[in-house]
Design a binder for these strands. Structure first.
Lengths: 230, 230
DNA sequence: CACGCCCAACTGGTCCAACCAGGTATGCTG
DNA sequence: CAGCATACCTGGTTGGACCAGTTGGGCGTG
C-alpha cells in the first residue's frame, strides 16, 4: 500500500514554511520568483502559486503584484494558528518552549472560561458536563471525554474568541503528540477534580469554578516545567 | 484612479468565505465542484483552486482528492485567525458579539501577560516600556504608542502563544474599525494607569502588575458592554 | 432475484504554454 | 545631471489537456 501520495503543492508549502519558521528565510527577505521556485522544486508554477497562497493566508508572506513576495515577521504579524505548526520545526522557535507556552495560555484562558461558564451555562450544558465526568476506560478514552468536557465549557461561556483560541491550542497539542500526552496525563486522570469543577459551574459560583479550574490546569503546567523522566 | 484591481481569486475566496461563515453553506455540506464554481464566477478554474487553497488553510473546508470538498464546522475546528474575519459578515456569528468576545479575551490574557512580564522582563524591555508611557498627541498617536507598549509586554513574557494570540486579537479589532476605536478610547487615554502598570512590572511584582492590568483592561470591557451613545 | 464486481463518469491534482498587468531599473534624451 | 520613456522582471489570469482517486450504477454471476 503506497504511503498516500501527498499533493505536490503541499510539499512546496511545507518546505517554504519550514524555511520561514526556522529563520533560514529571514523576515523582510524576498522569496525567489515563482518561476524560479517552480524550476527549483521541479513542479509546475501553479503548484507553487497554490503553496504561496497558503503561506499568504497563514500570514507568513506578503505578495505584491509586480514586486517580489516577501517574508513577514511572523512573531509580530502571525496569528495563533501558526502555533500548531511550530512544533514541526525542530530548530529555533520550536520545541518544548511551544508546549510550555500552550499549557501556560491554556491555564490562563481556561480559568476565565470556567468562571464565565459558571455565570452563563444553560441547564442543558450543565447536564452535558455532568455526563462527561468520571467513568473508566483507557487513558486515551478519558482524554477524549475530558477534551469534550472542556469543549462544552467553552461553548457554554458564549465567547467565540475563547472557542477559536481553544481550537488553536488543541491543534497545537495534537501536533506535538506524543509529548503532549505525557504532559496532560495527570490532569486527565484527576477525575475528582473534574467533578468538583463541574459542580462549581453547576452551582453558578464563578469564583469557585475559576479557582478549581486553576488548580486543575496547573497540574499540566507543573509537569511541563519539570520534564518527566523516562 | 481605478480602485485598485483585486485579484480574482480573492473575490472568489471572499464570496465562499462569507457563504460559510454566515451559515448559508452549512457545515458538512459539499462545495460545488471546481469546474462548476469556475463557471459560476466566470473565472478560470485555477483561480477557484487558489481560493479553495486559502479556505483550506483557514480551516473552513476539507478537500478530498476524488471526492467533493466539504464545509467544516468552523466553530469546532477553526483557529483564532478566523476571528478577524467574523466582523465582516454582518449576519449570524458576526457583529458586536465578536468585539465583546475580543475584549473579554484580551483582558484575560492581558492580566497574565502583565504578571509574567513582571517576572521575566529584562532591563532593556523595561526601558522600552517606560519610553512608551505618557506623552501627548492625538488619540490615534496615543493608541499606536499604547499598542506598542503591549507588544513589548507580550514579548517580555516570553510566551509565543500569547504573542500570536495577541496578534490575532489585534487583527480582529483592526478589522472592526471604527467601532473598536470608540471601545478602547478610555483605556488608551488612561496614561496614569499605564504608568502604574509599567512600574509594577519594573518592580517585578507579578500580582500587583496583574491587578493593575486587570483594572486597566476592564475599562474597555465596561465600554463594550454598555454601547456608547452617539 | 440477490449479491458482487467492474467500469464509466464524476471529483480534485498537475502540467504546459501563453498572455495580461503592475513595478522597477535601465538608459536614452533634453 | 535631471527627467522620462521603455524593456524587462515580477505576480495574475487564462485555456486546455491529462493524471489520479472516488463513487455509483449497470452488468454478470450465483
Amino acid at each position: 500500500m503506497p504511503p498516500t501520495r501527498r499533493p505536490v503543492s503541499e510539499a512546496v508549502f511545507n518546505e517554504l514554511r519550514a524555511e520561514i519558521l526556522s529563520g533560514r528565510l529571514a523576515a523582510g527577505a524576498a522569496l525567489a520568483p515563482e518561476r524560479t521556485l517552480s524550476e527549483t522544486f521541479a513542479v509546475n508554477r501553479h503548484a507553487v502559486r497554490e503553496a504561496v497562497k497558503r503561506l499568504q493566508q497563514a500570514g507568513l508572506v506578503e505578495v505584491h503584484h509586480g514586486g517580489s513576495t516577501r517574508v513577514r515577521d511572523w512573531r509580530a504579524t502571525g496569528g495563533l494558528d501558526l502555533l500548531a505548526q511550530l512544533p514541526l520545526v525542530g530548530e529555533a522557535g520550536g520545541g518544548p518552549d511551544v508546549l510550555r507556552a500552550v499549557v501556560e495560555a491554556r491555564r490562563c484562558i481556561g480559568v476565565d472560561i470556567a468562571r464565565l461558564a459558571a455565570l452563563r451555562a444553560s441547564p442543558e450544558a450543565i447536564a452535558e458536563l455532568r455526563a462527561r465526568v468520571g467513568g473508566g476506560g483507557s487513558l486515551d478514552a478519558a482524554a477524549i471525554r475530558y477534551e469534550e468536557l472542556w469543549r462544552v465549557l467553552v461553548r457554554a461561556c458564549d465567547n467565540v474568541a475563547y472557542e477559536l483560541a481553544y481550537n488553536s491550542l488543541m491543534a497545537t497539542t495534537d501536533a506535538a503528540l506524543p509529548a503532549s500526552r505525557a504532559v496532560f496525563a495527570d490532569e486527565v486522570r484527576a477525575t475528582d477534580a473534574h467533578r468538583e469543577l463541574v459542580e462549581a459551574v453547576a452551582g453558578g459560583d464563578g469564583e469557585l469554578a475559576a479557582q478549581r479550574a486553576g488548580a486543575l490546569l496547573s497540574r499540566s503546567l507543573v509537569s511541563v516545567l519539570e520534564p518527566a523522566d523516562a
